[in-house]
């Protein structure tokens, strides 16, 4: 395997990791606000204070990893995306800042104000929506280079059915992933009332997720024919994705093995996300940046991969420790520690 392929795979794994852990976080914000409005806010608050607060910085690092990594492996993407994304990127930073400060300011021994709870819930939906724009742009047609000047065609972006379907897909996926996780968490905490509620959320958000996925698929067909055709060649990955979705739904519907159900949801998104990514190649930004022509210097690429492998030896045990303490420790989850 070439270092370019390894590089993009590493980055995609981190983005996938972010997709899962951040979805849990973002969706929890929305559900927490919704539950507060409807006065059912018990389990969400427990999740926020006992799981999300200790790990939100870790969640954030997955994202930082991705964007630092992509500049390292494919420096030209910094040039194109950096120039084009000044405004949406800055807005995303502000939203992430509001959310990050919530954990420190609001959840830290003081009462929760309604304004902050609203912002916490709203950013949970707005951040995925704004970050998903980068994926839309990568399909080409929105970032233009004329006479050496890179610019973003806002009109095309805001009037494109594809870009809106990606936004919708991002938001409903976040809610679905989060609800599936909350179902597992509530079952783990043995909180029956909460379980009943969040299981309903998970069942509810499943349908929009599948509909949005299909809509996005069709819209992509109109926007980028090449990518669309490539996806057909990888049909089996999307088939597996749907298969795991069905397993997850069946388990949640039957009300058993919620842990396995959440793993199925993770696999559902794993296959969809990697199928999408693999069929996107070789482009990082269609048509300007490809993984082969715009990769970093080979020496840097290999150094980054070596560091990445060494880093994993450090990170994986640490992450496992973190999960064992805050997620898999049944007594802790139940609030006994």
């Amino acid at each position: 395997m070439s270092y370019e392929i390894i590089g993009i795979t590493v980055l995609w794994i981190f983005l996938y990791g972010y997709l899962i852990v951040a979805s849990v976080d973002f969706g929890a914000g929305f559900f927490a606000y919704y539950a507060k409005v409807t006065k059912k806010d018990h389990i969400m608050n427990q999740l926020i204070s006992r799981y999300l607060s200790p790990v939100w910085e870790v969640t954030n690092v997955f994202f930082v990893f991705f964007f630092v990594g992509i500049v390292g492996f494919f420096p030209d993407s910094a040039y194109y995306y950096g120039t084009a994304l000044l405004v949406p990127g800055s807005i995303a930073i502000i939203l992430l800042a509001i959310r990050g400060s919530f954990y420190a300011f609001e959840n830290y021994g003081s009462k929760k104000s309604n304004v902050y709870m609203f912002l916490y819930g709203a950013t949970g939906l707005l951040i995925p929506a704004s970050l998903s724009i980068a994926l839309t742009l990568s399909e080409g047609g929105f970032i233009l280079e004329e006479n050496g000047v890179v610019s973003l065609d806002y009109l095309a972006l805001f009037t494109s059915p594809y870009s809106w379907s990606v936004v919708v897909l991002a938001v409903v996926s976040v809610l679905f992933i989060s609800a599936a996780f909350l179902t597992f968490y509530a079952a783990r905490a043995n909180d029956q009332a909460a379980l009943k509620l969040v299981r309903k959320y998970a069942l509810f958000w499943a349908t929009p997720t599948i509909i949005a996925a299909l809509t996005t698929f069709i819209a992509l067909g109109q926007h980028n024919e090449r990518h669309y055709q490539n996806m057909f060649d990888l049909w089996w990955m999307f088939g597996l994705s749907v298969g795991f979705f069905i397993i997850a739904m069946w388990l949640i519907y039957e009300g058993k093995r919620f842990g396995l159900a959440f793993i199925s949801v993770m696999l559902q998104f794993f296959f969809a996300f990697f199928g999408y990514g693999a069929s996107h190649l070789p482009y990082i930004l269609d048509p300007y940046v490809t993984i082969y022509e715009n990769a970093t210097h080979e020496a840097t690429g290999i150094a980054l991969i070596v560091v990445f492998i060494l880093g994993l030896f450090l990170l994986i045990p640490s992450l496992i420790l973190l999960m064992r303490l805050f997620l898999f420790d049944a007594d802790y989850v139940k609030g006994k520690k």
Partner: peptide, 16 residues
Amino acid sequence: MQVAGNVISLPLFMEV
């Protein structure tokens, strides 16, 4: 960053 990505991204990556 286009230049930095080629040469000095290693410590940036390690920082993360």
